[in-house]
Write a protein that binds this DNA or RNA. Structure first.
Lengths: 241, 241
DNA sequence: GTCGAAATTATGTATATACATATTAAGACG
DNA sequence: CGTCTTAATATGTATATACATAATTTCGAC
């Protein structure tokens, strides 16, 4: 009945056994799962091993542990979902169409007030503004307008972004430890409409991303998709560890 | 010297000490963090305690552990972000405007093929179709079109959704353990345009959610917002355990 | 020098044990 | 009957120990 690959270690097996019972609904929310000493007997192992599995399930939010009372399957209260952010190349290739991109423009300049606003920069400094178009087959898939903070990423000044698009280049060259995405709908203005080969005023999906490294803004980018060509998927899936 | 709130347990303190060094950028990606035996000496504790902290950091994706070589700060490759899904009441009240909603229609029917498609139902069965409008002040904020699978939630048949809107009611009455959100842009059709008091064809943000309980579809709902009135925010934040 | 065996090293997993702590149940007492 | 104390119980944390495993390095045979 269980055709999955069995996890190598015992505590992982215990964890996955239990989480499967919960996720399949065999143990409904509120159900008391066996005590540590019962699982210890069932799996013929030490309490530490069982404890490791249960602690991880608790940290993942699947169960709640109460001293003296035992562990219980939690109500999945979560209002947070995991949003998969894919590389554009990956997104395009998932449709089966060949991917390519075009660097439309690249301009180094002292940061304007608007640039600093978009990047979240306090001080003045040089920025690099890059615009690209990404294609699925022959049709434009996405317009990219990007600002790169040159005081955080001076190496970008030597990159033309003709062979490699900004995102893969940045991922390879600059570490970052925080990112924020804002997602909204927008009517295409003339600029977007001509870039995406759609009529002005038609609906677009806008994904704006800002990334930081050690509190310092690295880059700000706005991806604009024609409404028909893209959707985002976010899942709430109780984590498995 | 450490003015933060001290975590209660030793392994948590080790974990938070290290993750702070990483997130603040003191230890950059690629940096080798001290060996377990070095941390053992530094914190004057057993290897198991250090191991617990490091294992959790590894599982959270902050570090990578390599046998014989040690543990290293990982490149934050993650392309997954946490999307906050708020209740509409919360969203509206965050703008400072008073919230209210209006139940437009409520209809019980045998599921059509389209209903089953939307809900992800295999078999036929009764569904409840509910339509609402949510307001921010006097202006329409969001249109909600929902299907409820009555074979999974029979109690819904006795609820009129006049006093309480479907989402809070469902959260209080039905457990669920999986959810999927699809986010896209759309042009308002006549129906949406009149519901939101905008002109047909103007851009809208669509959030479609489906939830399951123990593999069984519970409800499918489509929230439609005028482009100006709403945006979604997703963050990538390295988890702290 | 090159190849391959053996030692070294850091992590991965598991055990038995100990004591702490939160929570509930049972009992004593006014 | 209610309250206070005490015991019982499940989890929380930590230790010392042991052996397994993966990845290097060392070093000897050729």
């Amino acid at each position: 009945m269980n055709t999955r690959a069995e996890p190598a270690s015992l505590h992982q097996r215990i964890l996955s056994d239990i989480s499967e019972k919960i996720l399949s609904g065999v143990w409904a929310p509120g159900h008391r799962i066996p005590f540590e000493h019962e699982l210890t007997a069932e799996y013929n192992c030490s309490r530490m091993t069982v404890n490791k599995a249960l602690s991880q399930l608790a940290k993942a939010g699947l169960i709640e542990r109460r001293r003296r009372s035992g562990s219980f399957v939690r109500q999945p209260h979560s209002q947070a979902a995991i949003l998969e952010i894919h590389d554009i190349r990956t997104e395009v290739e998932a449709t089966g169409l060949p991917y390519h991109f075009e660097r439309v423009s690249r301009l180094k300049r002292r940061s304007s007030a608007e640039d600093r606003e978009l990047l979240g920069l306090d001080a003045a400094g040089a920025v690099l503004a890059v615009e690209c178009r990404h294609f699925a087959g022959k049709r434009p898939f996405c317009q990219e307008k990007r600002l790169i903070n040159l005081s955080a990423v001076p190496e970008a000044e030597d990159e033309e972004f003709l062979e490699i698009s900004p995102n893969p280049w940045l991922v390879g060259h600059v570490p970052w430890n925080a990112a924020e995405h804002r997602i909204r709908a927008m009517a295409a203005d003339e600029d977007v409409a001509s870039a995406l080969d759609i009529t002005a005023g038609s609906p677009c999906l806008v994904v704006e991303r800002r990334t930081w490294n050690a509190e310092r803004p690295v880059t700000q980018v706005r991806f604009i998709y024609a409404a028909e060509s893209h959707e985002l998927v976010a899942r709430f899936a109780p984590s498995q560890g």
